[in-house]
Simulated scan of single mutants.
Amino acid sequence: MNEIVEEMNKFGSNLIFGVQIFNKIHEMIEEKKLALENAILLLKYIGYWKGLKNVWNIHFDASSLSGRFEKMIIDKNGKKEEKNDNLLVDLCECYFFLSYNFTSEMLSICVPRLLKAALKKEENDEAQKEVEMALLALRYICVYKFLRQKLYLSELKEIIKYHQEHHNLTQLAYQSAWQFLIFRMNIDGNMEEVIANELHFGREAARELEELTRCVDWKRKKEEERRGKESKEVLIIWRWINTLEEYFDSFKLWNAELVGLLGGILKLFLAAKDNYPDLRDECLITFGRAAKNTAVEIDALVKEGIVDLFFEEMKQFTLDEDIMWNCLNFFLKLSKRLKEEKEDEKKEEERKEAKRKVFKKMEEEGYEDAIASFKEIIDFLQQKYYYSISSDISDYFVNA
């Protein structure tokens, strides 16, 4: 079963883990054909795999097993026995891994329980695995589901700060803690100061991404490529990229640590470019979001080589449609920002200086000719991709 689950893709998981399978597991528990502890072990493994590969489905909520777990969680909450506490944590993990919609009651019970489990500071393998499971399950709270800060923030800060001093978490556990926090930031913006300047997200994400990038053999074997099987490090990198997309899409506080993070994403792009096209394209999408975000300093995009990267990609003799679209999207966002005048005198001078630098580079690299060569396919790219791009070539140019 473990091997089947590990090799299953997202389509396969949604096909197999439907309402019927969860109803069947519930029926087998009722008829004592399957022990509850074995059912929990199986469901936690399925949930762990789903969490690692960022797979979501909504079938569990409609099953009889979901109702059973909800009732057990409510009944066992408040009973102060160690055995009961362990079972309650297991139930909460299964519930978070498999559910999609969480009631306020479930959140108020499960979030504190999972955070308590994640606060364990022992460094043995068993304790690390328990912490990893708890943090991975917490990530499954929908990004749009509001949580009161008092329910999680002090505990998450303690978990992250302790790891920064003692390195007690696995890479997956640490990434999950950050992903939970960044996704909460989207609907609770006053956390950004804590994330950026107290917990140093830019520095930590850059270091983790660089370490993971070094650990991967980027010359993927054809058999692995055919089966879509990825190493654990690559799967964690995918989770980081998803987190960074969300962050660059919405953050408002710029600091110097983010310069290194942009450089880290660039190194990942170069490593993944030849054999991991999907990951390569996600890096380009992340840069596009950075170019759009007014908090990102354009000078950093120039100095870290991000602008050069897109110039180089555009000049290739053969380009696939994904790279074409990402290049056009990046320069459209960049050009728009360079054209927008600032009311603040200092920021306006910075914009003009950045504009001069980018324009000079565009002239040197023959940028306008490269963009003009894409004119005939812009309408096609607009039809293919969800996000539209301008069909007016002049929108991609920056006049000195």
Results as ranks from 00 to 15, higher is better:
127 A>M: 11
128 Q>V: 05
116 K>G: 11
114 L>P: 03
105 E>H: 03
118 A>K: 14
122 E>C: 00
126 E>T: 15
124 N>R: 05
111 V>F: 04
125 D>E: 07
112 P>Q: 04
125 D>L: 04
104 S>N: 14
107 L>Q: 14
113 R>D: 03
132 E>I: 06
107 L>K: 13
111 V>L: 05
112 P>L: 03
109 I>M: 05
110 C>K: 00
108 S>Q: 11
125 D>C: 04
111 V>Y: 04
108 S>C: 06
121 K>W: 08
114 L>W: 01
116 K>I: 14
104 S>F: 12
131 V>L: 03
104 S>T: 13
113 R>A: 05
130 E>M: 12
127 A>R: 15
121 K>L: 09
110 C>L: 00
124 N>Y: 02
132 E>Y: 05
104 S>R: 15
106 M>A: 08
102 F>E: 08
130 E>I: 15
130 E>P: 14
119 L>M: 13
130 E>Y: 14
132 E>P: 06
118 A>D: 08
118 A>P: 13
132 E>T: 09
102 F>C: 07
109 I>G: 08
129 K>I: 06
109 I>H: 07
114 L>G: 02
129 K>Q: 09
103 T>E: 05
114 L>Q: 00
113 R>Y: 06
116 K>F: 12
122 E>A: 01
129 K>A: 09
117 A>H: 08
122 E>V: 01
121 K>V: 14
128 Q>T: 06
132 E>K: 06
111 V>E: 04
113 R>I: 08
102 F>D: 08
128 Q>W: 03
131 V>N: 00
131 V>W: 04
117 A>F: 07
110 C>V: 02
104 S>C: 09
105 E>D: 06
102 F>R: 07
127 A>W: 11
130 E>C: 11
113 R>M: 07
115 L>F: 11
115 L>K: 12
109 I>N: 10
123 E>V: 14
126 E>H: 15
117 A>D: 05
